[in-house]
Structures are given as structure tokens and as C-alpha cells.
């Protein structure tokens, strides 16, 4: 790496002469070693999934959750340093609850991503801190109804000034990925961690931009993609952890919840079956490392 020996990589917040912040790039390396996390924005909800690498047989299966609830309608998952992920979640919860305290309404996914983007970016500015060793995926469902403010007691006028606007659209699914630099974009499908390239390739095939994929199918695709991406990390065992947020008419009624056991197991069964079906194809995929990643390591 060009950074070695130059000294420009020894402290945070310092640019190298060619305009790079090496500490941030090293943080990205930490992310690239983590278990794969993905998020899918479906037409009627959002799925979050993570490949939870089992580091010891002494760990209790199903314990030590990696996907966290930030507010009723929002969840987050991250790849990279797990404690950094925990702190990210803790800060996100504080942001969500302080938003509610100020505005008396739930924070939107976009606003939370913005707040957290700002927060992570601040950790690239000072020599006394290091950047976050995670890339986080935040998924949420912003209510499609005109929400009452928290604590509202009445219904307000039905028409006229301050009244309801007929046919106005609110809310919908939200999916954002926030990187160690503080960079965040909104996505149809997001992937990070060790198997991100494979996962991204699979996500692209889903044509998510068309907005046709249902949440139910999204869960199955998410499980399959985690299984496919695990090929990049084959020597280690893993557990699949999945959560979802549906619209108000859906199974979670706008809340961020774990995918129920039966549905998760069915999705895993289908994922394993799909994997057996095209095992040979996967072998070839593993070899062609994409160009984008190489550039980073220069």
C-alpha cells in the first residue's frame, strides 16, 4: 500500500498529499473482513439480513443479536467491528428518541441516515478519535398514513384549514447505507462486509428499482443472497439473522421485528435448495474479483 512509510496514515484527520484519509480507508478494511450484511427495499417493506459468523462453538445459537431496533419502525445492521456497531446503534437510538422529543413524531429513515452520517463523519475530523470500523445499513418504514403527533388527543378538522388532504401520499420504505467516512446513500438494495460483491451482483439481478418485489419474496431473496455470499467465507460456520419492517397492513404493521421462526426456516430451506441447484456456477464467481476493490488497495 502506498500509505506505508509515508506517515500520512499514522493519525486520523490528516490528508495525504494526494487527498486521501488513510485512517478512513483502514476502517473500510475492517468492514471488509466482517460478516456480510444486506438490506432489501421491497414495495411493501424492508428486509435486513446478516451472516453472523460463529466464532466459537460455545456461543449460544440465536443469542447475541446483530440486528438492532432503533425505533419502532426502524432497524440497523452493520458489518465490521461489532462494538463499533453497538455504539452506532446506541447513538441512533438517542437520535431517534431526541427527534421524537423535539418533533413529537417518529424520525424518518432519511433523517436518521443524515444524522448518523454526520455523526460518523465527525469521527474523521479529529486526531483524538478513530473512524468507525463499520458500514451500517439502516432500514425503516415511514408510515404511509398522516400520523398524529405523539400524545395527540383529538382528530383535528376533517376538512379545510389544518384538515386532511385527500389522496396525499406519505412515507414508504427507506434503506440507507452509512460508511466509515460518513458517506451515506439511499439504496434499493444494499450490501456490505466480506461477501458484498457477490451479494451486490445478486441484488442487481432482482431489478429492485422496478418496485415490484414483495416483502415476502424479499425475505426469501435475502436469505438466499446471504447463503450465496457466504461462499466468500466458506471455512467459517454462520447463522442467518433476519428482521423486517412491513407496511401498516403487512405482517409487522409498520414495526421493526425479527422475521418469525417458521418464515425464516422456510427461507433458509429454499436458500439451501437454490444453492445446491447451481453449486458449480458459484465456483467460477468466486475467482473473478471485481476491479473496484483492487483500486482501493493500491
Amino acid at each position: 500500500m502506498t500509505s506505508i512509510g509515508t506517515g500520512y496514515d499514522l493519525t486520523n484527520s490528516v490528508f495525504s498529499p494526494d487527498g486521501r484519509n488513510f485512517q478512513v480507508e483502514y476502517a473500510v478494511k475492517a468492514v471488509e473482513n466482517g460478516g456480510t450484511s444486506i438490506g432489501i427495499r421491497c414495495k411493501d417493506g424492508v428486509v435486513l439480513a446478516v451472516e453472523k459468523v460463529i466464532s466459537s462453538k460455545l456461543l449460544k445459537p440465536g443469542a447475541n443479536k446483530r440486528i438492532a431496533t432503533i425505533d419502532r419502525h426502524m432497524g440497523a445492521v452493520s458489518s465490521g467491528l461489532v462494538p463499533d456497531g453497538r455504539h452506532f446503534v446506541s447513538r441512533a437510538r438517542d437520535e431517534a428518541s431526541s427527534w421524537r422529543k423535539v418533533y413529537k413524531t417518529p424520525i424518518t429513515t432519511a433523517d436518521l441516515a443524515s444524522r448518523m452520517g454526520g455523526y460518523l463523519q465527525a469521527y474523521t475530523l479529529y486526531s483524538s478519535v478513530r473512524p468507525f470500523g463499520i458500514t451500517a445499513i439502516v432500514g425503516g418504514w415511514d408510515s404511509e398514513l398522516e400520523l398524529p403527533v405523539d400524545g395527540q388527543v383529538g382528530s383535528g378538522p376533517s376538512i379545510g384549514a389544518g384538515g386532511k388532504v385527500e389522496g396525499k401520499k406519505y412515507g414508504g420504505p427507506g434503506l440507507y447505507m452509512i460508511e466509515p467516512s460518513g458517506l451515506y446513500w439511499g439504496y434499493y438494495g444494499a450490501a456490505t462486509g466480506k461477501g458484498r460483491q457477490t451479494a451486490k451482483a445478486e441484488l442487481e439481478k432482482l431489478d429492485l428499482a422496478a418496485g415490484k418485489l414483495s416483502l415476502e419474496d424479499g425475505v426469501k431473496e435475502a436469505a438466499r443472497i446471504i447463503y450465496v455470499a457466504h461462499a466468500d467465507n466458506k471455512d467459517k460456520e454462520f447463522e442467518l439473522e433476519m428482521t423486517w419492517i412491513s407496511n401498516l397492513d403487512g405482517p409487522t404493521k409498520g414495526r421493526h421485528e425479527e422475521v418469525p421462526k417458521e418464515i425464516l426456516e422456510e427461507a433458509e430451506r429454499l436458500a439451501k435448495k437454490a444453492l445446491e441447484g447451481d453449486d458449480d456456477e458459484e465456483e467460477t464467481k468466486e475467482d473473478d474479483k471485481p476491479a473496484e476493490e483492487d483500486k482501493m488497495e493500491e
Binding site: 438492532a68 428518541s97 421524537r100 405523539d150
Partner: peptide, 23 residues
């Protein structure tokens, strides 16, 4: 008092949200 009711409603709401942090 209605404003105290609204305060308590929000307080209970935040309690419910915090309860949902652990699954």
C-alpha cells in the same frame, strides 16, 4: 390535566420503544 396526560402518553411511548430494543 390534559397536558400532563399528553406528557405521560409520550413517556409511556418512549418506555415501550425502549422495551422493544431487546428482542
Amino acid at each position: 390535566d390534559v397536558s400532563d396526560m399528553q406528557y405521560l402518553d409520550r413517556l409511556l411511548n418512549s418506555l415501550d420503544i425502549e422495551e422493544a430494543y431487546s428482542s
